[in-house]
Write a protein that binds this DNA or RNA. Structure first.
Length: 268
DNA sequence: CACGAGACCTGTTCGC
DNA sequence: TGCGAACAGGTCTCGT
């Protein structure tokens, strides 16, 4: 469940419950979850530190502790849960932090793609990321200029985190539909009017996702309900909510891509 | 620079 | 019913 709105939703729910607690100890059940450290060294380093804050950058969680940061990326199947200290570990728990107040923060991740970095400063990890789509740096003018400077299919470009940071497969398909742009359109061929519409659409779908507490699909359910409002994502063969035509599914940049062939006509 | 293939992983769903 | 293929919210690296 990890695109910007889902991470943002989790950050908002976890932050007030985590800030102020002390990390008593850590447990590592899948060593490769630690991207830049060994379990032994990590456990030694994180113990005793206090949680000062929890923020989001793109799809990353930035847990600020005294003197360091624990940065976590959920990738495809990761989840963060705050549970009672005595709760029995779940099948796919990879990492857990015992906290003061008889709670523990658990990183659960069926596919083992998720990663955690223990760093003095996360700036280097975030250095290559593009602008936050809900931030001030992301403007219609910037988007138009940036699209014109590249010659890539628009969908893979929007998924490129060094271009814009935070969009994933769901919100990209939804935004392109809302902006009426075919996913395989060359970025340089996107008109000024389409640029403006795309900027608007990206902000709108992300804000709607956050308002609905993210999307919950497959077996990883966590309370969000944006999945009930998808216009095209995962709706191949069903009616486009705008025109009624059947939504199509193609593969672009090795990702399943959903679009309406009438609202989003293929470029000439 | 742009793009495709392959890796990394496990679980669910689809098609015969 | 069973079984293999296809597919899944992400990102990295390599070859062309």
């Amino acid at each position: 469940m990890p695109e910007l709105p889902e991470v943002e939703t989790l950050v908002r729910s976890l932050r007030p419950a985590l800030v102020g607690r002390t990390i008593l100890s850590a447990r590592v059940r899948w060593a490769r979850t630690l991207a830049n450290d060994t379990p032994a060294h990590f456990k030694k380093q994180i113990g005793g530190r206090q949680v000062l804050g929890l923020a989001r950058r793109a799809k990353y969680f930035d847990l600020q502790v005294t003197g360091a940061h624990l940065v976590i990326h959920l990738r495809m199947s990761g989840d963060l849960r705050l549970v009672p200290a005595d709760q029995v570990p779940a099948v796919h728990d990879r990492l857990s932090l015992d906290l003061s107040g008889d709670m523990k923060l658990v990183f659960n991740d069926a596919r083992k793609f998720g990663r955690a970095w223990f760093l003095p400063d996360p700036a280097s990890l975030f250095a290559r990321l593009g602008p936050e789509p809900l931030g001030e740096d992301f403007t219609p003018a910037w988007l138009c200029a940036a699209l014109g400077a590249r010659r890539r299919q628009i969908k893979p470009l929007l998924l490129d985190q060094t271009f814009i940071a935070g969009l994933g497969n769901i919100y990209t398909d939804e935004a392109l539909h809302m902006a009426k742009i075919h996913p395989q359109t060359c970025s340089q061929a996107v008109s000024a009017a389409q640029c403006a519409a795309l900027w608007q659409a990206i902000r709108a779908v992300l804000q709607e996702g956050i308002r609905r507490n993210g999307a919950s699909i497959d077996w990883v359910y966590r309370g969000g309900e944006f999945q009930n409002y998808f216009r095209v994502y995962g709706r191949a063969g069903q009616a486009c909510p705008a025109c009624g035509a059947a939504v199509e599914r193609i593969v672009t940049g090795q990702r399943g891509t959903h679009f309406c062939p009438v609202c989003q006509p293929a470029p000439a």
